[in-house]
């Protein structure tokens, strides 16, 4: 019984998390509540998580590149700081490369990169979060989340299934967009589509959630597509072997993992 209690607790939490699923429930009208729940649903499911991820990067000519990695995440606090560890397995020339991020909300993240051929632990300047993640159309910020406090939010439409929210950056100089709009699923609170608009009012970038599965009670986007409408290129992200609440210790997100990633946590073998 003692053992099953935590499970029951998680089950109840999961129920609460997807509480809005009931179609007859009242629509939410407070945009901050929606945005916060969307942030939690998209980036903070469980206390930690693991997935084998493949990015297929396709340029305008149809040429494909692949980045495959195992990603571990651990939340320090829901909606707050998080740690990420990424171990690359493909392509061959980046195999064994490890990327470690200590995400700090409201401050610069700490980022490290380990290059196995040189046995080199590199510290990476926090820099612009809106630059390409490993050469894909995803930005760093798409992977680890954009803090809701950085934008002003307006609920512009509530459809049968979605909340449509327009977000305007508080510091327009820090980003390349004038605004972005997100379509949030009413039942799961997952963002189903995001469109970024430039100063001229044109949509130039789109992220779509192509597939959603419920894993361990958490609705999870398992397939995503980001399109760069200016270059004509796109990247598809697919996730497999997803697991939540593994109890990954804090120590996994330290220099130890950069040099010696522990199979126990990174292996996605069944």
């Amino acid at each position: 019984m003692i053992k099953t209690l935590p499970k029951l607790f998680f089950f109840l939490c999961a129920l609460l998390l997807v509480g809005g699923m009931d179609a007859t429930a009242q629509d939410l009208t407070d945009v901050h509540t929606i945005i916060d729940r969307a942030n939690l649903a998209a980036y903070y499911a469980g206390d930690d998580g693991r997935a084998l991820t493949r990015l297929t990067i396709v340029d305008a000519q149809g040429r494909e590149r692949i980045r495959q990695f195992t990603i571990l995440r651990r939340d320090v606090e829901d909606g707050g700081d998080q740690s990420y560890a990424v171990l690359f397995s493909r392509p061959a020339d980046v195999r064994g490369t490890v990327f470690l991020v200590q995400k700090h909300v409201g401050e610069d993240d700490d980022r490290w990169l380990y290059l196995p051929s040189l046995d080199l632990v590199k510290r990476i300047a926090a820099g612009d979060k809106r630059t390409s993640f490993v050469g894909s159309d995803f930005y760093y910020e798409d992977v680890s989340g954009r803090a809701p406090q950085e934008d002003e939010h307006a609920l512009i439409e509530t459809t049968d299934t979605q909340y449509v929210i327009k977000n305007t950056p508080l510091d327009p100089g820090s980003v390349e967009f004038a605004s972005w709009t997100v379509w949030v699923d009413k039942a799961t609170f997952l963002p189903m589509k995001m469109e970024y608009v430039d100063a001229a009012g044109d949509v130039y970038r789109r992220i779509e959630s192509l597939a959603v599965e419920t894993v361990a009670g958490y609705p999870t986007v398992t397939q995503m597509k980001v399109s760069d409408l200016r270059t004509g290129g796109h990247t598809i992200s697919e996730m497999r072997s997803i697991a939540y609440d593994l109890g990954i210790p804090e120590q996994v997100f330290t220099e130890r993992t950069l040099r010696n990633p522990q199979r126990e946590w990174f292996s996605t073998r069944p």
């Binding site: 084998l52 493949r54 297929t56 692949i66 495959q68 195992t70 397995s89 493909r90 061959a92 020339d93 195999r95 497999r240 072997s241 292996s267 996605t268 073998r269 069944p270």
Partner: peptide
Amino acid sequence: DDDWGDDWGDEDVQAVEIHGL
């Protein structure tokens, strides 16, 4: 092979992983 249909390698129990250049 890097085909989408493959098993992503990592789930494979492989004897020896071979790479090179």
